[in-house]
């Protein structure tokens, strides 16, 4: 506001401006906090129903404090066919997909990151392009391919398919993490006579562990929540994961037991939500996706 620099009156004037602005800034901060609280409440409200209805003996679709606190809803769904078997299938399919994705990603990302391969760049561009392709759009042909090769209702094939679908992002992420590990360490190991396999297993994998954990957790969480893929590729009640079981159990009947639905949802969803939030906190920086989210 002042055009000419006038040293002596500047100091008191600035103090005066600040003293006038201070209550205004406090008011602004209060408005911001109020807005944030409102938004947080709006986001929490639909999910709050899950937490309350699960413990409510007479749960309805509404958010309300349980009239009669109960664990019966959990007991009702905690049977082999409804809960335990589907959860085991989820663990097998999604845990397997996460392990395969991490292993195949680190193997593929290592040469891409270390030895300027001639086809490395086009390969990476293809991988990056593939991360943008919608999985949903190819599921009908995937289904008919599975029919042709007799793979429908195979947990192994579903697991490998989910791993393949997670690979483009996994490779891309892992390569970014590996690029951050100085190659000089490995050169020293090579001088000492280590093979590429040894330097990868003994040096690179331990150093990249936080990054690999991010890839693993991310793959697990995404595949755990995936409904469409197992819904199409798996048929029998013995093999479907929890994501599909919850739909066949609750989605297809007219009259829904809201309490049991909420209890099942919590048992199925809470572990991965907590896993993700804890991993995001403890792995901190690694979880900004190795810069993949930046524009």
């Amino acid at each position: 506001m002042t055009t000419a620099p006038r040293p002596s009156p500047a100091a008191p004037r600035r103090r005066r401006v600040r003293s006038v602005a201070a209550p205004r800034r406090a008011a602004a901060a209060a408005v911001v906090h109020l807005l944030l609280a409102g938004l947080a409440l709006a986001f929490a409200l639909p999910a709050l129903w899950l937490l309350l209805a699960a413990f409510d003996a007479r749960a309805s679709a509404r958010v309300r404090l349980p009239e009669a606190f109960t664990l019966d809803n959990f007991a009702a769904v905690a049977t082999r066919d409804v809960l335990f078997l589907p959860i085991w299938n989820s663990l097998f399919i999604c845990g397997g997909a996460a392990v395969v994705t991490v292993a195949a990603s680190v193997l593929a990302a290592y040469p891409l990151s270390r030895f300027g391969l001639r086809f490395g760049r086009p390969f990476l561009y293809t991988v990056l392009f593939a991360t943008g392709l919608p999985l949903t759009a190819i599921m009908v042909p995937v289904y008919s391919l599975f029919v042709q090769f007799g793979l429908v209702d195979s947990r192994w094939a579903t697991m490998l398919f989910l791993a393949a679908a997670s690979l483009p992002f996994g490779i891309w992420l892992t390569k970014n993490f590996l690029d951050g590990i100085p190659v000089e360490l490995e050169e020293a190991a090579w001088v000492d006579g280590a093979s590429a396999r040894q330097s990868l297993l003994r040096l690179v994998v331990p150093l990249a562990a936080p990054g690999l954990a991010v890839v693993g957790v991310f793959t697990l969480v995404v595949t755990w929540g995936n409904f469409f893929v197992p819904f199409l590729l798996l048929r029998s009640a013995e093999r479907i994961p929890a994501a599909v079981r919850i739909y066949t159990f609750f989605g297809q009947y007219g009259q829904v037991s809201y309490g049991e639905l909420a209890a099942y949802s919590l048992l199925y969803a809470l572990p991965v939500v907590v896993l993700y939030l804890v991993a995001a906190r403890s792995l901190g920086g690694a979880f900004n996706f190795g810069g993949a989210m930046k524009g």
Binding site: P46, A47, A61, Y247, G251, A269
Partner: peptide
């Protein structure tokens, strides 16, 4: 992070 099926049920309710 909430699985899509659960989000669907939550919002339906």
């Amino acid at each position: 992070v909430l699985p899509e099926v659960v989000a669907g049920f939550v919002w339906a309710a």
